[in-house]
Amino acid sequence: MGETITFWVLAVVSVGAALGMVFNRKAVYSALMLGTVMLCLAVLYAVQDAPFLAAVQIIVYTGAIMMLFLFVLMLVGVDSSDSFVETIKGQRFWAILAGLGFVVLIVVAIGNVVFAPQVGLTTVTEQGGGYIRSIATELFTTYVFAFEITSALLITAALGAMVLAHREQLTDKPTQKDLSRARFRGDHPSPLPGPGTYARNNAVDMPARLPDGSAAESSVNRYIARYDVEHGRLPQDPELAEAIRHTAEENVPQTEAEQSSNEVTK
């Protein structure tokens, strides 16, 4: 009885979370939904006489793998939400149809099977002298070779990830001398003006005024300006609004120094 209740609650939650994962626009929500599904499955394993697998599921999946997913999401950009434009016409419709067809196939196939009464794991585990002991016997006798291969696989995976994620430094790191030389060669030897200098307001998203009274576009951070434009937070003053809009549209390619500093913060 208890198992039935657990099953139905967790089945509803896990299927709902799985659907939420597929249909959520934001990748971080998808990751959280996947975490929910994995926790539900861990409880289902525990209910089904597999406490070892439940622990491994929580440690490996929700602990390690989900953290890795979230970590990479932060690296790649949390706002990398999907475009829902179809590149192949009608692809989504056919995909959903295929999914439904698969579900019907599974339900019909499994619904037609008559299972013998459940054997259960009690006899096996009693023969092996306890659950953990019988798992260990199985793992370290019958499957010992596969187990050893697994260690090689894990080392290979770690090395592969390191090789793939490593970036070769092709040019010399710019020294302080190079940086200051580049700055004096460019059009801004001085630091950029801070927002709010000579301005009538001191908000960080309002451009500073130059001595001649015009708005200094470079004083507003590009990202802040873009946020203002996207959320309709432009000021009343048309001149300031124009300056902010202009800053937001400006598409300055990232400099190498900026990129490497981004890498560091990542």
Binding site: F7, V15, L19, V22, F102, V103, I106, V107, I110
Partner: peptide
């Protein structure tokens, strides 16, 4: 109960494939 678990498993698999 086995049938229930298997159908849940198939459902999750289909959602993942979709």
């Amino acid at each position: 109960m086995t049938t229930h678990y298997l159908i849940l498993s198939g459902l999750l698999f289909a959602i993942g494939a979709m």
